[in-house]
Design a protein around this nucleic acid. Structure first.
Lengths: 191, 191
DNA sequence: TACTATTTAGAACGTTTGTTCCAAAATATT
DNA sequence: AATATTTTGGAACAAACGTTCTAAATAGTA
């Protein structure tokens, strides 16, 4: 009947996502997006809706991918080994790409004033904490952590520490420094 | 010879600071500032320079005040008691005002792309970590923490955890939750 | 009281913002 | 090959942006 889209909507959204990730929401203009996505203004509005709607889709896409990456990083023969590898994987990704977590950036730029953003990030956060909790419950069962530990609290503590690691990396830009802090965290949760 | 300023520049800057603190840099317009500061555009430009310059002054003001507050909160008969009170004071201020740290907001919105902002925040961060390090060194001397602990690393760990606490508060908006995490942190650094 | 330096209020500036619209180009189906 | 439907590029829009400017008001000095 008619023409088909000449671009892959998912692929172009990821270009937008990377730009939002780098510059933040408010500092990214529609003109920036047109240039970076390589799409016409009309095509963007037609495919994704307005700027805010596009941002929410980018953030949702990021959150889903991040959760997947966390789970993929959970390698190891024991639960605690999995937890440890997840932490090391976050540090590695951060220093390799030089970028922090888009959801955390978004938390501090928008989550206090934008309910939709808050909801996406909060759900993603809960998913990650839940995953940690599961692993730590397993770790408790097999005796890798002592029986007086609360897996839920420990999970929340680890997740909160990710944000601390990112903040530290932004300020220090020092790979060794962040790795040292991560190792310290790992030591703390083990004992 | 001529008229004197009819307003207190410091006092009006604090109004601007609170607005930037609440909305972030990019989401705050010059019109917003005119309304909130109760000053004419010309007076703002004449007194503080342009928007970016005003922001830097607000951030510097915030950082100085925050450091002072941290030191004021360091009450107690022993070094570790002081550390503990500093942590509790941050939590209390957060849940009471409902606001997080302006410097941390700024870290994630601007520090990666704005060198001046980065510099102000980084120096403030170092000041705070140095203060913690001093207290923890004292704590080590009097045997409040074990001799195998590294005061510098522990200080960085505590400071990083503040950011985690703020992130947690933004997402959960749950006073109890943040207090629980803070108590957990205190327990961790004691043992 | 007259003078003068400065502040004041707000109009006005040229950009940039996010968004909409339209004519031309394009392609899967008939 | 003709048709129908959708995309495309870019012009056009009003509103908001950060900034500058001007004229009137003001108050300390002479």
């Amino acid at each position: 009947m008619a023409r088909k889209k000449e671009f892959d909507p998912e692929e172009r959204m990821e270009k937008a996502r990377d730009l939002f990730w780098e510059k933040g929401y408010n500092a990214t203009s529609m003109e920036d997006l047109v240039q970076t996505m390589g799409l016409n203004r009309g095509s963007i509005y037609d495919t994704y809706g307005d700027k805010h709607s596009l941002y929410l889709q980018c953030l949702g896409n990021y959150a889903a991918e991040k959760l997947r990456e966390h789970k993929e990083a959970a390698l190891g023969t024991s639960p605690m080994e999995k937890v440890e590898n997840m932490i090391l994987s976050v540090v590695e990704a951060t220093v390799n790409t030089g970028k922090c977590c888009m959801a955390v950036n978004s938390t501090f730029e928008l989550a206090t004033v934008d309910q939709s953003v808050h909801s996406i990030i909060n759900n993603n956060w809960k998913d990650i904490v839940n995953f940690f909790e599961q692993l730590l419950t397993d770790a408790k069962k097999v005796g890798e952590i002592s029986s007086d530990k609360d897996p839920r609290l420990l999970a929340e503590f680890i997740a909160a520490n990710f944000t601390g690691l990112w903040q530290t990396y932004i300020l220090s830009r020092d790979k060794k420094q962040v790795e040292k802090l991560a190792q310290f965290l790992i030591g703390m949760i083990k004992h």
